[in-house]
Computed example of a mutant assay.
Amino acid sequence: MNVLTGGKLKLVQAALRLITESRSLTSLGLRELAREAGLNPNTFYRHFKNLDEFGLQVLGYIAEDMKSGVRELRRMAESSEQASHDTVAFVYRYFQSNPAATTVAVRELHGPSPLLRRALEAQLHASAREMAEDIIERQLVSAVPPETIHEISRMTIRYILFRAMDYNEKPEQREAIQQETERFINRQFRGAMLDNLSQTEVEALARKYV
């Protein structure tokens, strides 16, 4: 893990303070960043070659800050339902406490910098892979094939990212959004379990619970 310290950390944290609904990572000026961080403007180029490289560090900082907590929750979960509940609650609370992180992640996924778009795509893919690996290792949904778990994990990561904007901007809907997200995840895995059953087995299950 690349742990930021000193001037690098101050600049990254300054960027996250300056980003608002109307301002993106790529719109920040170097002098403004340095002033917010309490550093000399020349300090920026001692740490970063350009704004794209700086953007990569900001994205990496957000990802590492959040993923470490999520992984620990999934490893403690005793069921897929508990894993989805704890993960969704943690991620939404993180984005609520760090609204700039949500703004950066959503905007840069479709932003002007190809380098940052690719970097964010790679981070989303890495988060989904870690989620799938944790689920497989803990055998939380043993009836679902590994390739399907990876597919659902990729869908889940993107779903949570985009719902995070609504979660932050609509406080009166937060509980409903969290519950909706949990249902989305659980339904994906339950549906995947049915994929492995024959039509006769599916119909037998349906009769059992009618």
Score class of each variant (00 low, 15 high):
residue 1 M to F: 11
residue 5 T to Q: 09
residue 7 G to M: 10
residue 8 K to H: 07
residue 9 L to G: 00
residue 11 L to K: 06
residue 11 L to G: 01
residue 12 V to A: 03
residue 17 R to C: 02
residue 18 L to V: 02
residue 24 S to V: 02
residue 29 G to A: 07
residue 29 G to T: 06
residue 30 L to P: 00
residue 31 R to N: 12
residue 31 R to G: 04
residue 31 R to I: 09
residue 33 L to E: 08
residue 35 R to A: 09
residue 35 R to F: 06
residue 38 G to Q: 10
residue 41 P to H: 02
residue 42 N to Y: 07
residue 43 T to Y: 13
residue 44 F to Q: 05
residue 48 F to S: 09
residue 49 K to M: 04
residue 51 L to K: 14
residue 52 D to P: 10
residue 63 A to K: 11
residue 64 E to Y: 02
residue 65 D to L: 11
residue 67 K to F: 05
residue 68 S to E: 12
residue 72 E to Q: 10
residue 73 L to V: 11
residue 73 L to K: 13
residue 73 L to G: 00
residue 74 R to Q: 07
residue 76 M to S: 11
residue 76 M to C: 04
residue 77 A to N: 04
residue 81 E to C: 03
residue 84 S to P: 05
residue 85 H to C: 01
residue 86 D to K: 06
residue 88 V to K: 06
residue 89 A to F: 02
residue 90 F to Q: 05
residue 90 F to G: 01
residue 91 V to R: 14
residue 91 V to H: 01
residue 93 R to E: 15
residue 94 Y to K: 10
residue 96 Q to S: 06
residue 97 S to R: 15
residue 100 A to W: 07
residue 101 A to P: 09
residue 102 T to W: 03
residue 102 T to P: 02
residue 102 T to F: 01
residue 105 A to H: 01
residue 105 A to Q: 11
residue 105 A to Y: 06
residue 106 V to L: 10
residue 107 R to S: 10
residue 107 R to L: 08
residue 111 G to F: 05
residue 114 P to G: 03
residue 114 P to V: 03
residue 115 L to F: 03
residue 120 L to S: 04
residue 122 A to L: 13
residue 122 A to D: 13
residue 129 R to G: 00
residue 129 R to Q: 10
residue 136 I to A: 00
residue 137 E to R: 11
residue 140 L to K: 07
residue 142 S to M: 07
residue 147 E to V: 09
residue 150 H to W: 03
residue 151 E to C: 05
residue 153 S to I: 10
residue 156 T to L: 07
residue 161 L to E: 10
residue 168 N to D: 14
residue 168 N to Q: 15
residue 171 P to F: 09
residue 178 Q to M: 15
residue 181 T to C: 14
residue 183 R to F: 04
residue 183 R to L: 15
residue 184 F to P: 10
residue 184 F to Q: 09
residue 185 I to N: 04
residue 189 F to C: 03
residue 190 R to Q: 13
residue 192 A to Y: 06
residue 194 L to E: 08
residue 196 N to T: 13
residue 199 Q to A: 11
residue 199 Q to C: 02
residue 201 E to T: 04
residue 202 V to I: 15
residue 204 A to R: 15
residue 205 L to K: 13
residue 206 A to D: 04
residue 206 A to F: 04
residue 207 R to L: 04
residue 208 K to M: 12
residue 209 Y to M: 10
residue 210 V to Q: 12
